[in-house]
Amino acid sequence: MKYRSVFDIIGPIMIGPSSSHTAGAARIGRAARTLFGIQPESVKVSLYGSFAETYKGHGTDFALVGGLLDFDTSDTRIPQSLSLAKTAQMDVTFIEEDAISDHPNTVRLLLKAGEKEMEIVGISIGGGKIQIVELNGLKLNLSGMNPAILVVHNDRYGFISKVTNLLAKYQVNISHMEVSRKEKGQVALMAIETDENISDKVFEEIKGLSNDLQVTRMIE
């Protein structure tokens, strides 16, 4: 079920005109910025389906960029985000893709800063709600609405339990969890949404579980 209350259907406080194409797009952009960790120097924005067809008229372009600039959905600067991105020296390129996606409101973001690079796929599912469905080719289902921690690690026996046991030790309740991998024994992704923000102490302990981890935290 996509909606838990009438407020999920009405959507968030936002700069319009559309909850799906504007608020949802802003949240995808902001989730991508959070996962990337810093402001990207360049972003390639590949739009699919309805996003590709109507992104200029519905404000999807400036909403995505506003999110990438770390603006909330209600931030009055969002309509000016394209020019603000230039001022911030963030180069953004929009590409209208012809390929058919699984969801009509789909965007693929390729973020770069120096040697750092990340590719994220997000969808806007209505009412301002989103899902991040792919990170660097690894599948996931992240709402972008709750605190979360993402752990990229080498696929090996017992590692997932190390992370979950550590969260249990600090009484951090898991609301949703998914794991994915491309191949057995290769790179894997653990995406864990929680009921409360993960503290600095817990975050650092998770990072200390192995030397080959990439750990990202999303907080409310």
Rank of each mutant, 00 (worst) to 15 (best):
K162V: 03
I219L: 09
Y170P: 05
P79Q: 05
E183K: 12
I160L: 13
L167N: 10
T22Q: 08
E205A: 10
I132R: 06
D98R: 13
A148K: 02
N136P: 03
D75V: 09
E53W: 12
K2G: 12
D75A: 07
H58R: 12
G158C: 00
G208C: 13
G144Q: 05
E134K: 15
K129S: 04
E196C: 12
D61P: 08
L84Q: 09
F36Y: 09
D98M: 13
G49P: 03
P40C: 05
G185D: 07
Q214A: 15
G24H: 02
P17H: 06
S83A: 14
L69G: 09
Y3I: 08
V107Q: 00
L140A: 04
R30K: 12
E178Y: 07
K44Q: 15
G66V: 09
V133T: 14
N105M: 05
F51H: 01
N165H: 14
S50Q: 14
R27C: 03
I192K: 07
A148F: 02
S19W: 00
A99W: 02
L35M: 11
G114A: 06
S18P: 02
G16Y: 00
G158H: 00
L209F: 07
V107H: 00
G29H: 06
L47I: 09
K184G: 09
A26C: 14
F36Q: 03
G49V: 01
A32K: 01
N154R: 15
T93D: 08
R156L: 03
S83C: 08
E193G: 04
I206Q: 00
L135H: 02
G127L: 03
K2S: 15
E193W: 05
I149M: 08
Y55T: 08
K116N: 11
E119G: 04
G128H: 01
L47G: 04
G127I: 02
K112G: 10
L135A: 00
R181G: 00
D61F: 07
K2C: 13
D75K: 07
A85F: 04
Y55S: 13
D8P: 06
K207R: 15
M1C: 13
I130D: 00
E96T: 04
V215G: 05
G67S: 10
P40Q: 01
I206W: 01
S101K: 06
S143R: 02
I125D: 02
K201A: 12
S20R: 11
G66F: 06
A88T: 14
E183V: 10
L69T: 09
Y170K: 12
L140W: 00
H153Y: 10
N197G: 15
E193K: 06
L140P: 01
T164W: 04
L82F: 06
T87M: 10
S20E: 12
T106D: 01
R156E: 09
V151A: 06
S124Q: 01
G57I: 13
T54S: 11
G66Q: 07
G158S: 08
A113Q: 11
V163Y: 01
I192R: 04
K139A: 13
D212H: 12
